[in-house]
Write a protein that binds this DNA or RNA. Structure first.
Length: 887
RNA sequence: GGGCGUUUAGCUCAGCUGGGAGAGCGCUACCCUUACAAGGUAGAUGUCGGGGGUUCGAUCCCCUCAACGCCCACCA
């Protein structure tokens, strides 16, 4: 009775992936639909850079968010997942600038602002959607109609509206301030964009003469002797006995021989360096503050590209590194260099350019975030928004409880141009949402717009609002702002908690008084298998698309989900993907097994009275899995959800239930066959439903077979816990049955029986329910352990002599094989088992004979321990019985 | 300098409010058994980083030391 099976032996992901993605699109399955929960569930995708190529971080983003949105969709929420891309000011401008240079040997200034921007837009139209296509390969189920680009019209309106609002409140202001200047980008960058790295340098000790008393020489320690050209004071601590008399006198700066005042300032650390500090307000953050306190002049000695200007004539045109060498030479010549020591110290580097940033004074726009930060902190403190895992709120608080004004202007061209206008005629300065034609004050037409653009994060911070149409009323109505704001969950990495999460909170709450999302799930950073960050320079990056090609998107997704819980690192080994590919294939083959019987299966489960014990068992187990998966996914424990379903499918369903089904399906009892086929189909529907959020493609493919493509799995209801399916007793019996079967196999393996060798088995148990269960399952023993015949008796019955044996707490197993087995081997095996059991028994017994334990431990724990002691005791008794049989 | 985190089987990691150490991968032996060799069955492997404390009882709580990682901080 061979049954035809025309399904391929292995699952072919490539065909299924594109086919189902297209089908989901065609059926508009990603669009929000009202569901039984009567609530919306919105996720906002962190917009990848338009210049981006999908990397593992994006793949993880895509997987976790898609799993969530599919899960909630199936649970009956009206789900919306909003995609988009970011203009990524600096990196995009750099990419296109490089390209134009390569092709035409022209820089952006050669082209002019208007033409240059045209080129970037053209580039964006052509290449900017590559990452979107790559995301689709991962199966992301976002509503592409909501797709948005940070420089689109509405986000631009949002930026202008917000800017003007805060400008008019006085929260946005322009100031001469010392900022981090990136000489590569030739732009200011914010504090957050500066990375401090340990750099090897030197400590130079320089001599400064005192004008009033040529005998005194001040020794000043510095790591940057080249900045002496910008010195405008020497400072000492006013409490420093050594120097306090010098305050008010004049020091002479070496090389340039500038006369500068010696001042007292509390900032100077008596212990540090020599206790004397050269003050360079133009190029040092602290010194800038000292300068403000003491009204010192500011000298700028740098050009925008980081080279020295005419204020430092001896080193004009040189870059800092060469300048330092030159200054050192001159100082030696002059005899002003006292000492030069190795010194390692942190130096700020631009996050994007990786170049040493120079503190420089320039006119920039700032946003005062003091009040907004406070509001954002409160929202997390009072639970309006919460982090998963909770620990990340510390990072969030650390940033927001100590807010600094945010430098929001960038000297770039690609971005939202600052909506501030100036009048050449009357010097008026104002902010406006619509480009004005004349001066607000004097009505003169000779006006111009500020040439700077805003920090990219300024528009990113408004993303939850602008993607839903704010501030355009028509767009807001179309996109149903009121229904989808605030978002439910934001999923992102911890590296942008302050760049992005904090700013969305501040800006979102400023506009709406509501946190833009209720939960923030912070996922891990993907690293290589050795825990190193994936980077181009190390060459250890894994391309997700390669993995998708090799193992399928489902395998890739399952791997990432299985590695995502509350961890901060996810060390990815491609072998893991292969492992989960095998799981996906296992699922496929389990389906191949039931496929020929689908015709027999009925749509409804039979009445409970017709359920086989094994049916009750598998449904109870399935129900348990459904419960844990729902709970796990609700709190972003994708790892737990994956391991639950993996375990169930592999062990419970494939290794036992399917194996136990063969006896029935290959047999002659038609009614039993129909019931079993129905059960198998039912289970399979539940399994693919549970798995669908994580591995959407194969599950949709299988669903197509199960339902003859009459419906799509993506639109089905998720499996919920059903109390009526609980059955602790049958689960206990089944576990014991598995113990016994495994015990028999164990003996077979220990005595080297071939799979074909049939055996006679004698079972002894005092558990009457178990005896009945085993009796009813006797036919299955044949399939599972090749048992030809056997008996089930009480433990008190006479045992066969000299058998291969095994004992569990509840059942003794004897396989009479006299003459075929080595008696000493058997005795040794049993003795070893006894020793192990004895040791465990002693541990438990020690507790029971400890009066303190008996007095203090809760009753629950005591009875549990007693129970265990009894089980070990039973097993020991059985083992010694077995030993007796060899006498 | 301040803060956070990690340390559990060869590798990657899970262990919730303290109560007999887990998973996947890898490894060993035997099997091409009619869903699956991308498979099956059986199996081995841990002083839970070191030390101290609290407790009847600690992988879990407290202290301390060590190693590693990350973030913040004004480059004397």
């Amino acid at each position: 009775m061979e049954i035809e099976n025309n399904l391929p032996k292995t699952f072919n992901p490539e065909g299924a992936e594109d086919k189902w993605y297209q089908k989901w699109m065609d059926t508009k399955s990603f669009k929000p639909k009202k569901g039984k929960q009567g609530e919306t569930f919105t996720i906002l995708m962190p917009p990848p850079n338009v210049t981006g190529k999908l990397h593992m971080g994006h793949a993880l983003d895509a997987t976790t968010q898609d799993a969530l949105i599919r899960f909630k969709r199936m649970k009956g929420f009206e789900t919306l997942w909003i995609p988009g891309t970011d203009h990524a000011g600096i990196s995009t401008q750099a990419v296109v600038e490089k390209l134009i240079w390569k092709q035409e040997k022209k820089n952006r200034h050669d082209l002019g602002r208007e033409e240059f921007l045209k080129r970037i837009w053209a580039w964006k139209e052509e290449y900017g959607s590559e990452i979107v296509n790559q995301q689709k390969k991962m199966g992301v189920s976002c509503d592409w109609d909501y797709s948005c680009f940070t420089l689109d019209e509405v986000p631009n309106k949002a930026v202008k509206k917000f800017f003007v609002m805060l400008f008019n409140e006085g929260l946005i202001y322009q100031a001469d301030y010392i900022v981090n200047w990136d000489p590569i980008l030739q732009s200011a960058i914010s504090d957050a964009e500066v990375e401090h790295k340990e750099v090897k340098g030197f400590f130079y000790h320089l001599k400064y003469k005192v004008k009033e008393d040529p005998n005194i020489e001040l020794i000043i320690a510095t790591t940057r002797p080249e900045t002496i050209f910008a010195d405008t004071a020497v400072a000492v601590n006013p409490n420093d006995e050594r120097f306090k008399d010098l305050i008010g006198k004049t020091a002479i700066v070496p090389i340039c021989n500038r006369e500068v005042p010696i001042i007292g300032d509390e900032h100077v650390d008596i212990e540090k360096g020599t206790g004397c500090l050269k003050v360079t307000p133009g190029h040092d953050f602290n010194d800038f503050e000292i300068g403000k306190r003491n009204n010192l002049p500011i000298i700028n000695i740098l050009n925008k590209d980081g080279s020295f200007n005419t204020n430092a004539p001896e080193i004009e045109g040189l870059k800092p590194k060469d300048a330092r060498k030159k200054v050192e030479e001159i100082l030696i010549e002059l005899g002003e260099l006292v000492e030069k020591k190795d010194h390692v110290h942190p130096v700020g580097h631009g996050q994007r350019s990786d170049e040493i940033v120079e503190p420089m004074v320039s006119k920039q726009w700032f946003l005062n975030t003091t009040a907004m930060s406070e509001v954002a902190v409160k929202a997390v403190e009072n639970g309006e928004m919460s982090f998963f895992p909770k620990g990340w709120e510390n990072t969030y608080f650390a940033w927001l409880r100590n807010p600094k004004d945010w430098c929001i202007s960038r000297q770039l061209w690609w971005g939202h141009q600052i909506p501030v206008y100036y009048c050449r005629h009357c010097n008026a300065k104002w902010a406006a949402e619509e480009a004005p034609h004349e001066c607000v004050e004097c009505k003169n037409k000779d006006i111009y717009q500020d040439s700077d653009v805003l920090d990219t994060w300024f528009s990113s911070g408004l993303w939850p609002l602008s993607t839903l149409g704010w501030p355009d009323e028509k767009a807001m109505a179309e996109k149903r702002f009121d229904d989808f704001y605030p978002n439910a969950t934001l999923v992102t990495g911890f590296d942008i908690i302050f760049f992005w999460v904090a700013r969305m909170m501040m800006m979102g709450m400023k506009v709406t008084n509501q946190a833009p999302f209720k939960h923030v799930y912070i996922h891990a950073i993907v690293r290589d298998k050795q825990g190193r960050k994936m980077s181009k320079s190390l060459g250890n990056g894994i391309d997700p698309l390669d993995m998708v090609k090799q193992y399928g998107a489902d395998a890739m997704r399952f791997t990432l989900a299985a590695g995502s819980g509350y961890n901060r690192d996810l060390n990815l080994d491609p072998e893991r993907i292969e492992g989960y590919r095998n799981f996906v294939n296992k699922l496929w083959n389990a389906f191949r097994f039931i496929h020929p019987y689908l015709d027999k299966a009925q749509d409804q489960l039979p009445v409970k009275s017709e359920w086989h014990l094994h049916d009750k068992w598998i449904l109870a187990e399935l129900n348990t899995v459904a419960k844990s998966m729902n709970e796990a996914l609700d709190v972003y424990r994708f790892d737990d959800a994956c391991s639950e379903i993996y375990q169930f499918v592999y062990e419970k369903f494939c290794s036992w239930y399917i194996e136990l089904s063969k006896n029935i399906l290959y047999g002659n009892d038609e009614k039993a066959k129909i019931i079993r086929a129905t059960m198998l189909k039912y289970c399979f529907r539940k399994i693919v439903t549970l798995l669908h959020p994580i591995v959407p493609f194969i599950t949709e493919e299988i669903w197509g077979y199960l339902e003859n493509e009459k419906s799509l799995l993506i639109n089905q209801e998720y499996v919920e816990f059903d109390p009526s399916l609980e059955n602790a007793e049958v689960q206990e019996m089944m576990n014991k049955f598995i113990d016994v079967t495994t015990g028999i196999r164990n003996i077979r393996s220990a005595v080297n029986l071939k799979p074909k060798d049939e055996i006679d088995v004698r079972l002894f148990t005092d558990d009457k329910r178990l005896a009945k269960f085993l009796y009813e399952s006797r036919h299955f023993m044949k399939d599972l352990a090749n048992v030809k015949s056997g008996t089930i008796r009480n433990k008190s019955a006479e045992k066969p002599k000299r058998s291969a044996s095994f004992a569990s707490a509840h059942t003794e197993i004897f396989i009479p094989l006299e003459g075929l087995i080595d008696i000493n081997d058997q005795i040794n095996r049993i003795k070893k088992d006894m020793e192990k059991t004895q040791a465990e028994y002693k541990k438990v017994e020690a507790k029971l004979s400890n009066a303190n334990f008996m007095n203090n431990a809760p009753e629950e724990v005591r009875s549990e321990v007693k129970e265990k002691a009894q089980q070990f005791q039973d097993k020991l008794n059985s083992l010694s019985e077995i030993l007796k049989s060899f006498e």
